[in-house]
Design a protein around this nucleic acid. Structure first.
Lengths: 171, 171
DNA sequence: TAGGTTTGTTTCAAACTTGAACCAAGCCCC
DNA sequence: GGGGCTTGGTTCAAGTTTGAAACAAACCTA
């Protein structure tokens, strides 16, 4: 089939998107590196753990939630563990499993740096959009994310809150 | 001042955005790694050069266009040079300058892989959006990019097409 | 229940990115 | 016309990411 090139409008949208993503991620990384001594992804790991009832999540679930590879997560958690911000527990029910937990120190770092982070997100993104655009943003990227179902994501939510994927739980 | 936390809607938008960006970039990187043997950024370097009348651009301008650091670009161009896809020329007017040029081989790789790339971009993004949403996407990220003016971007377009920043040209 | 497959996680080497430092080369101005 | 500042680019070390391979435990199934 002959290529369906992007229309001029699509091209403009694509370019604006690509440029913005780069700029926003860089700004976010720099801000968090400054304030929290870690890049955005690492902060997100802490944040994700903190939102869980017990502040723990299995590696695979955490990786899936953050849309990153397990190997990338392993590396990141190892670093955060060295910094004392997260810990690892063995999963009692599935001896293969490893559970990342947010430590008290990790929680403190998060609480200390969250306001600055949110402020940055606002400055970079939300402050520049109208309320309608915020809604549009949500719809657009919800649609985009949904395009990936099956490759990842799976059903979700399970009996044990920090264990969201397959039917089994642990710890 | 007390932190302006994100509203539930803003949070949903932010999360959907973050997740989508990760998924889209990963998919794009994988696709291009497969078809072109290089990650998305490297492909973008070739693409950007190809859109220039003479298929050459000064390093700084290229970096600015792509919103990346000069050092990152230096590394990338060095790799692409090894692969024979881009070359470096000295700038005759400003002896400090270095000009990246797209080679014939580079152009061929681009032409061969562009259709697959565009198809992927469609599959990941545009095929999932309504025409109105494409327009919204453009407006949203144009607004976001504009938030960075002054930190980068500068005036643009100059007398010599592949030299877009300061008043001088070369080669 | 042994053997084979799948799943959860880590490991390893190679590739890439970051930021600070460095080296020229242009510029400015007294 | 010789400092001193700025700009264009590269280099270097440290940190991060990638993808494939390695392992181990769990899960079939004959």
């Amino acid at each position: 089939m002959t290529t369906r090139w992007l229309s001029p409008e699509e091209q403009r949208a694509w370019r604006a998107y690509i440029a913005s993503v780069a700029l926003v991620e860089d700004a976010l990384d720099r801000q968090l590196q400054q304030e929290a001594g870690m890049p955005h992804l690492y902060y997100s790991i802490l944040a994700t753990l903190s939102e869980t009832p017990e502040r723990k999540l299995r590696m695979t679930d955490l990786a899936e939630e953050l849309k990153i590879t397990r190997s990338r997560l392993t590396y990141a958690v190892t670093r955060l563990e060295k910094d004392g911000l997260v810990g690892r527990e063995d999963c009692r029910w599935d001896k293969r499993g490893s559970i990342a937990t947010l430590t008290e120190d990790g929680m403190r770092v998060l609480e200390r740096t969250a306001p600055g982070h949110v402020e940055t997100v606002r400055a970079l993104l939300f402050d520049r959009l109208t309320p309608e655009q915020v809604g549009q943003l949500e719809e657009i990227f919800t649609a985009v994310s949904e395009g990936f179902q099956g490759e990842d994501a799976r059903p979700t939510a399970e009996d044990v809150p920090w264990r969201r994927r397959s039917g089994k739980s642990c710890s």
